[in-house]
Amino acid sequence: MSDKITVSTISSTLKHYLLSVNTNTGFGVVDDSWNQDDFAVIANEPGLTHGLPVKTDYYSVILCLRGGCKKTIGHFVFEVYTNSIHLVSPQFITSFEDASSDLLLYQVVFKKEFLTDSLLKENILNNLLEVNPDYPPIYGLSQKSCASLKALYEKISDEAREKGAFHLHILRLLLTDLLYEMNRACENCLLHSTRHLSKQYQLVYKFKKLVEDQFLILKTVQEYADALFISAKYLTEIVKAETGQNALHVIHNRQYLEAQYLLSSSGLSIKEIAERLNFDNSSHFSRFFKRFAGNNPSEFKQLQ
Rank of each mutant, 00 (worst) to 15 (best):
Y201G: 06
Y106E: 11
V211D: 02
G68C: 04
S193P: 04
S193T: 03
L128G: 08
L19W: 10
M1P: 02
N253E: 10
L14F: 09
G267I: 04
Y59H: 04
V41F: 05
I73M: 10
A232L: 05
L263M: 07
G51V: 01
F288R: 02
S2R: 14
Q200D: 11
K271E: 01
Q214E: 08
Y180D: 02
P53W: 06
G294T: 02
E212N: 04
E130Y: 07
Q260I: 01
E242G: 05
S198L: 07
K121Q: 08
C146T: 09
S2E: 08
S265T: 15
L171F: 12
Y139P: 00
F78K: 04
I5C: 07
T9D: 03
L171S: 15
V61P: 05
E154S: 11
H16V: 04
Y139A: 08
A151C: 02
F279C: 01
F215I: 03
S231R: 07
D117A: 13
S101F: 06
K163V: 04
L235I: 14
N295F: 03
E113W: 09
Y81F: 13
Y153M: 10
A43F: 02
S283Y: 01
L173C: 12
E275G: 09
V30G: 15
H167R: 06
A160D: 00
E258L: 07
R184D: 09
D98T: 01
S145G: 08
K271D: 01
D31P: 05
F229N: 14
V250W: 11
F289P: 00
I62M: 08
Y224Q: 09
F96N: 05
S20Y: 03
L120F: 12
E272W: 05
L173R: 11
H86K: 02
S282P: 00
Y201T: 10
Q255A: 03
Y139M: 03
G47T: 03
Y261M: 03
D31A: 05
F39P: 05
H167F: 14
T23Y: 11
L210K: 15
L120D: 09
A99G: 02
H50C: 07
I170E: 14
F114D: 03
M1L: 08
P90G: 02
V131N: 14
H249K: 13
Y139R: 10
Q245K: 15
G294F: 06
E159W: 01
N126K: 15
S89K: 07
L248W: 11
T72E: 07
F229D: 07
